[in-house]
C-alpha cells in the first residue's frame, strides 16, 4: 500500500471563457520515504500538482488517498488537520512571518495545533540545532540571509514531524552554494524517513532524487527511478 495514491486527477482553471487544463488525468503513487523530483517546463502544472498533494487546492475530478484515507474530498477543517499533522511545506520565497523571530516562526505550526509552550520550546531548540541556527533563534527574518531563512522555513515545515514534505522550488531564490546546503538539509530529512517531493528547474538537483517525474502540459510524460 502506497503512502500517496492519485487517481485520474483533473484540475481545470476557468478565467472568463478560457479554460486552462492544468492537470490532465494524473495517476500516481508514491511510497513512504521516497525522494521525488518534479520537473518540467514552466506552466506544465508542477505547482498545481504540489498544491493538490498539499490539500491547498482541490481537484475537479479524481481521487487522492493519503495514508489509506480519501483526503481529496474532506471538508476544509479536516483537510486543515491533515495539513497540520501530516504535511510540511517549503516555499520558494520562504514565507516567514516578518514580525516573528526565527524561533517563533518555527513554533507557529505547534501554536496553531495547540501544543503546550514547554513542549514547543523543547522542540524548537532541537529544530534550531538541527538546521544549525541556535545562535539566530531571536533574529527576525529580515536579519537573516536567504539560506538561513530557508533553513528556518524547513525547520518550521518539519516541526510537526510530517509524513510528507512538499517543496516548491526551495532553492529558486538562493545562490548555488546556499542552494546545495538547503538541498542537503532536505535530503537529511528524507534519510530520516520523511517523503520528500521537490519541484525544481535545476537538473542537478533533479539528478539527486531517487525518482524523477517529468510533466508536460498538465500530464506526466515521464516517471523514472534511479
Amino acid at each position: 500500500m502506497s503512502q500517496i495514491e492519485l487517481r485520474d486527477i483533473d484540475r481545470v482553471f476557468e478565467i472568463g471563457d478560457t479554460r486552462v487544463h492544468a492537470l490532465k488525468s494524473i495517476s500516481l503513487t508514491i511510497d513512504a520515504g521516497e525522494y521525488v523530483a518534479v520537473m518540467g517546463p514552466s506552466g506544465s502544472g508542477k505547482s498545481t500538482l504540489l498544491n493538490i498533494l498539499g490539500l491547498l487546492d482541490r481537484p475537479d475530478r479524481g481521487q487522492y488517498r493519503l495514508e489509506d484515507r480519501e483526503v481529496g474530498a474532506l471538508p476544509p477543517d479536516q483537510q486543515a488537520a491533515v495539513r497540520s499533522r501530516r504535511i510540511g511545506f517549503v516555499f520558494q520565497s520562504f514565507h516567514l512571518v516578518p514580525r516573528l523571530s526565527a524561533a517563533e516562526n518555527i513554533a507557529l505550526p505547534m501554536v496553531l495545533a495547540g501544543i503546550a509552550p514547554a513542549e514547543r520550546r523543547r522542540r524548537v531548540a532541537e529544530a534550531l540545532a538541527d538546521v544549525g541556527l541556535e545562535a539566530r533563534a531571536q533574529h527576525r527574518p529580515q536579519q537573516l540571509s536567504g539560506g538561513q531563512r530557508q533553513r528556518v522555513a524547513i525547520a518550521r515545515a518539519t516541526i510537526m514531524q510530517p509524513a510528507v514534505l512538499l517543496a516548491d522550488e526551495p532553492t529558486g531564490n538562493l545562490d548555488r552554494a546556499t542552494g546545495a546546503e538547503v538541498t542537503a538539509l532536505l535530503e537529511t530529512l528524507n534519510h530520516g524517513g520523511t517523503t520528500l517531493i521537490v519541484v525544481t528547474h535545476d537538473p542537478a538537483l533533479g539528478e539527486r532524487a531517487g525518482r524523477r517525474l517529468l510533466m508536460e502540459d498538465g500530464a506526466l510524460s515521464d516517471d523514472r527511478r534511479r
Partner: peptide
C-alpha cells in the same frame, strides 16, 4: 501561510 500550516478557517 497559516492555512498551509494547518489552521482551519474557524481559527
Amino acid at each position: 501561510l497559516l492555512k498551509a500550516l494547518g489552521a482551519p478557517p474557524a481559527m
